[in-house]
Design a protein around this nucleic acid. Structure first.
Lengths: 340, 340
DNA sequence: CTACGTTTGTGAAACATTTCAACCCACGAC
DNA sequence: GTCGTGGGTTGAAATGTTTCACAAACGTAG
């Protein structure tokens, strides 16, 4: 019953009474083989339960059928949405997607990249721990199509897809100012993350343009962009003397905002009346929060899809040129920041 | 500068002045080659930037270095936590993990499985759309190590790892009854999902044992286990005549519960005073909800880790026996259901 | 009936690795 | 000296595909 070995093209060829090459043609160029033989071969395949060996295919053909995405933080739904966008594009191109998670650790990231190199994936999409890491430059030197997602590089040595974070910071603060807030907290960190810096920069820019005193935009640094850090920021916020306490907070991402929201409500504050909150990313759960969260929306799936298209272009188009794609995020105002 | 071809073992061998076989030995059985030559070969590898071709390795060696997990629903963080557990186990065994997402569509699932078969992955973990699907039985017939995660099969024709859902239903309802609730809603669906059926069954069992009238455990069916469905269930709940309206709800998963929570608060209900809520899964966001959500905790990472161990056993241990692993979920009581 | 073009099918080479039997060589025991 | 012994290394076969130059078969126009 159990056929020790899984059947190969050779077995199929024998069963169908044709040559190896013909079986291969049936799989790869069905138009060159006559309907009659094609059918015979297909029947043989079905009967034997033939499954093409991808390693052999790839070895000989030299081209793999997979893309890979190395995401930064598996606990943040944002990245899964990006991955979903990539997956859709990959599906269209009839490719598989390998999803890895570096968990913000450079060493894991490097290990994953090493594996992917061994697999000879067609292209790599990555939201890196550090977009200037030398091993990333190695990839490009090796000629591996590479797209940096949701980050950027100063030089333009590879494609990237990102969102205008400075602008994102601007619209968030603008909105809060419009709602009448005159003392606002910026919550986020560590500053080593480019995103955080730029969102903060945008916030400060527009704050200054509105002629508001710099001191009244309070920077509350955090250790990471997590729910727990959001809660702890909330505690620090509550600890400020009433006079100094902001009436609104702009968080560098939604996880922070969700943590802050929870802590605030738990502490008996009314949101948005006592504290207005705006997040960043607009993850699914932002809208589902008890007080639906205002957030600066990133086109998450679009980001992924666009990145996949760039990497495919680099992989297949001989005169590909690196591009830096930019999306403009927009504010989605919900209950957590509206009307005082 | 750019060396057209990526170097192969042959190139390394030439550069180091040894034979092919020796280079291979350096990679696979370093102990049999003398320290001197090993070092020479390693230097040559580094200089040439050699990267082993995994396809060729796999083709010849016959064994792949990857596991795969086909998850049911990428929008539910629960599955990502399971995946994380698998990933950890895979990392320990020095394997890569391929993560796929069927999005609850049998056709996508089958397409993914086909791909994985072609890749000759070492084993497949899956949370299937339907655990009795014929193509799943095909896998076993083919001899592919297979573990069903978070589902079960009636016959014991493959390994599975799941949670005792009947028990989960029991503890949730027991808890609510203890808090004094005498009219409770069970929210979940569709009934085609085994989980939903069993959680409901457990609920009914314990309700009857407590001597409460069957009619007072109100079953509110939903189309899916999503936040949106939770919201809509909330609306239906609010529409019930006050006399018939439950004072507590047990949701078949946390997404539903989160949706219900949001809708209820938005409608001006106080949780848990007007409506107590218990979810299922205990995803990260459950604790982070504005009113921290009580939930029946599944050991998510543990589930994944255990499943990975089973699949590895099946893959490597010649006298492997199929096992049905069971975890007992436990209630995590938080503010959404405590003390009226 | 021949020459020629088209359509189908063939067979061997190539891909990059692992594996294994065989070989070489130095060294110690006798 | 000779004979094992065993560590170190080699070379060739094998893995399952794809590709490509070529052959065979078959019409068809002249």
């Amino acid at each position: 019953m159990l056929n020790s070995r899984t059947p190969s093209v050779k077995d199929v060829a024998a069963a169908a009474g044709v040559s190896l090459g013909t079986v291969s043609n049936v799989m790869n160029r069905p138009e060159v083989v006559s309907a009659r033989t094609r059918e015979r071969v297909e029947r043989a395949m079905a009967e034997l339960g033939f499954v093409r060996n991808e390693s052999a295919r790839q070895l000989r053909a030299g081209t793999s059928r997979t893309l890979a995405y190395v995401m930064l933080d598996g606990t943040n739904p944002f990245f899964h949405d990006v991955a979903q966008g990539i997956e859709l594009a990959a599906e269209d191109a009839d490719l598989s997607l390998f999803i890895c998670n570096s968990n913000s650790r450079a060493e894991r990231e490097e290990a994953h990249l090493d594996r992917l190199l061994q697999q000879r994936v067609q292209g790599i999409l990555i939201t890196p721990v550090n977009s200037e890491a030398p091993y990333l430059y190695d990839l490009t030197r090796r000629g591996v199509p590479l797209v940096i997602v949701d980050r950027r590089r100063d030089d333009e040595s590879c494609c990237s897809v990102a969102v205008d974070d400075v602008h994102g910071g601007r619209v968030a603060i603008e909105h809060l100012a419009e709602q009448g807030h005159r003392r606002v907290a910026f919550i986020g960190g560590p500053e080593s993350i480019g995103q955080v810096r730029e969102r903060l920069q945008g916030s400060r820019e527009v704050w200054a343009e509105l002629g508001l005193p710099a001191d009244d935009l309070v920077y509350l640094p955090t250790e990471a962009l997590t729910v727990a850090e959001g809660r702890s920021a909330g505690e620090r916020l509550a600890g400020l003397p009433a006079r100094r306490r902001p009436t609104a907070a702009f968080c560098a991402n939604d996880l922070l905002a969700l943590g802050l929201l929870q802590q605030s409500i738990g502490a008996g504050l009314r949101v948005p009346d006592d504290l207005a909150i705006v997040g960043f990313d607009d993850i699914e759960f932002a809208a589902a929060a008890a007080v639906p969260l205002s957030s600066v929306r990133q086109p998450r799936q679009e980001l992924g899809r666009a990145a996949a298209q760039l990497v495919l272009d680099e992989a297949t188009n001989p005169d590909h040129e690196h591009q830096q794609l930019f999306f403009t995020p927009e504010l989605v105002a919900r209950a957590s920041s509206r009307a005082r």
